[in-house]
Amino acid sequence: MEDNEIINLWRSYGQKLEENLQLNRKNAEDITRLKVKSFLASMKPLKIFTIAAGIIWVGAIDLMIIKAFPAANWFFIISAGIQVLLTKLAIIIYLYQLILIYKADISEPVLETQHKLARLKSTTILVTRILFLQLPVWTTFYWNKSMLENGNMALYLIQIVITLSFTLVAIWLFRNIKYENKDKKWFRLIFDGKEWTPVLKSIELLNQVKEYKTDNAN
């Protein structure tokens, strides 16, 4: 076999090898994108259920506030009003997240999907912080004038301790629930589940896709 034939065969083999590598990278990228789509799809049922349950809840609380308003138990009205206001804000955020999930297209540029996932991540943290702000009002909605006028010192002290404790916990969680604490045990305890894990896994997979593209470019 002449030298030219050997060189041509070697070049042909190298070309086929490169084509196979490119195909494998493309298949790996497609599979990764499908996994991301699956992770995002797994979040939809919980988001939809949460939105539906939240709408029913705020509707019921609004009716209770309207019904109780003439009797003017202001402890209940103010506490329920704060709770339902924070819940409505959370519903808006959940709706925004659901729109992001439905708009996520695995065929779009990786950077676009990464931006959507980053917004999902940040709004998941935000909505959790907002919902924890409700803690104190769950300890005040049942107060009434008779309780304050006829209660004893022990009752007052117990109630103050409970309300103050819930308030401090709510403030602490609002200030400390941030991505920088994602590896802490208490953070993982709060966020472990369908609200959080699919987002992190999707971000990790898209980072792999980005690495594939970077390797190909090099």
Rank of each mutant, 00 (worst) to 15 (best):
1 M>E: 06
2 E>R: 06
9 L>V: 00
11 R>K: 13
13 Y>A: 09
17 L>V: 12
17 L>A: 14
18 E>A: 14
19 E>V: 02
20 N>Q: 15
22 Q>G: 13
26 K>G: 04
29 E>N: 01
29 E>Q: 04
30 D>E: 02
30 D>G: 00
34 L>R: 10
35 K>T: 03
36 V>Y: 03
38 S>H: 05
41 A>L: 07
42 S>M: 07
43 M>C: 08
45 P>E: 01
52 A>N: 08
52 A>E: 10
52 A>H: 03
52 A>M: 07
53 A>H: 04
54 G>R: 02
60 A>Y: 09
62 D>M: 14
63 L>Y: 11
63 L>F: 12
64 M>Y: 09
64 M>H: 04
65 I>V: 12
67 K>Y: 12
69 F>R: 11
71 A>E: 15
71 A>V: 14
72 A>S: 15
73 N>K: 09
76 F>G: 06
76 F>S: 07
77 I>D: 04
78 I>A: 08
78 I>R: 01
80 A>K: 01
84 V>Y: 00
85 L>H: 01
89 L>M: 04
97 Q>C: 07
98 L>R: 03
99 I>N: 11
102 Y>I: 11
104 A>G: 02
104 A>F: 15
104 A>W: 06
110 V>E: 11
114 Q>W: 02
118 A>D: 14
118 A>I: 10
118 A>P: 07
119 R>Y: 12
122 S>Q: 10
122 S>I: 04
124 T>K: 11
125 I>A: 11
127 V>R: 11
127 V>L: 11
127 V>W: 03
129 R>Q: 12
129 R>T: 01
130 I>E: 01
133 L>Y: 10
136 P>Y: 01
137 V>I: 08
137 V>P: 00
138 W>G: 02
141 F>E: 14
146 S>H: 14
147 M>Y: 15
150 N>I: 11
152 N>P: 12
157 L>T: 03
159 Q>E: 04
161 V>F: 11
161 V>L: 13
162 I>R: 02
162 I>G: 00
162 I>W: 03
163 T>I: 05
165 S>E: 09
169 V>A: 13
171 I>G: 08
172 W>I: 12
172 W>Q: 13
175 R>D: 13
176 N>W: 14
177 I>G: 14
182 K>R: 15
183 D>G: 10
183 D>L: 00
184 K>Y: 04
187 F>D: 00
188 R>G: 02
190 I>K: 04
190 I>C: 04
192 D>Q: 13
193 G>S: 09
196 W>F: 13
200 L>S: 01
203 I>S: 04
204 E>H: 09
205 L>F: 15
210 K>F: 10
211 E>N: 13
212 Y>L: 10
216 N>R: 14
216 N>V: 10
218 N>S: 14
